[in-house]
């Protein structure tokens, strides 16, 4: 598997550490309530198809949002988490 780090370019997946679904970018407010926090921390979709997840490119320290397809394994896009967040 290959992923494109927006900083370094096309790299082997061994250079990356996986975190999980990109919903982790949307941290609830401290007072958002139990359900929002429970959902943020514990509940994940298990999509058959397109998904967005977070990968850390260890050599350069960039957090990358990867758009990929869980069925075809096609990677359709990558972006820096800091930019995806804005």
């Amino acid at each position: 598997m290959r992923l494109t780090c927006p900083v370094c370019g096309d790299r082997d997946h061994r250079e990356f550490t996986y975190k999980g679904d990109a919903v982790m970018l949307d941290r609830p407010a401290p007072d958002a309530g139990t359900d929002a926090w429970d959902s943020y921390l514990h509940l994940r979709d298990n999509p058959c198809g397109d998904t967005r997840d977070l990968w850390y490119h260890d050599p350069c320290g960039a957090w990358v949002v990867v758009e990929r397809n869980t069925v075809t394994h096609a990677v359709t896009g990558t972006a820096l988490a800091s930019e995806a967040k804005r």
Partner: peptide
């Protein structure tokens, strides 16, 4: 911790 700090800085508080 380094990965976590990078995460907080890029993913939560850019």
């Amino acid at each position: 911790v380094m990965r976590h700090l990078d995460w907080v800085l890029q993913g939560l508080r850019p």
